[in-house]
Amino acid sequence: MARSDIALGLVIAGLSTAFAVEASGLPTAPGTEFSAGFVPMILGCGGALAGLGIAAEGWRGAGADQQGEAGQPPTLAGLVRCLSVFLAAILYGLFAARTGFVPAAAAVIGGLALVFGASLRLAAGAAVAGSLTLFLVFSHLLRVPLPPTPWLSALWPF
C-alpha cells in the first residue's frame, strides 16, 4: 500500500540520473585532475540509488505508515489560497520596481489577507502597517535599496 513511495522513488531516481548525465558532459579545467562534473556525478548516482531504494521499500510495503495527518485531499478554497500566495509574490516581483515598494507590498499583504478571510478593516490595517514598517526597517535602518516610491517620499520625506 505504498504505491506513492514507489512512484516517488522512481521520480527521484530519474531526476538524479538526469543530473548525473548532465554532469558527465562538464569539461576538465587545465591543472585539475578530474572533470568539474566528477563530484556531481557521484551525487547523481547516489541519488539514483537512494531513489531505487525508496521504491524498493515502497514495494515491500515499508512506507505504508506515511499517509497520516497531511493525507486529506486539499479543498478548492485551499488550492485558491495556495496559488494566490504564489501569484502575489510573482506580481510583487514584476511590479514593485514600477510602483515602488510600499504600494506593492501593501497590495500583496492586503490582497492576501482578504483571500485568507480577513475583514476589510483588518486587511487594510495590516497592509498599511506592514508595508510601512518593512519599508522603514529595511530601507532606512538597514539601507537596503528597496524600489523607491516617489510620491510617498514627496509626502513624507523620512
Binding site: T99, A106, A107, L114, L120, A124
Partner: peptide, 11 residues
C-alpha cells in the same frame, strides 16, 4: 484598501 490597491497598480 481597494483604493490603495487601484492607485498602486494604475498609478
Amino acid at each position: 484598501f481597494s483604493r490603495l490597491f487601484a492607485m498602486s497598480l494604475l498609478g
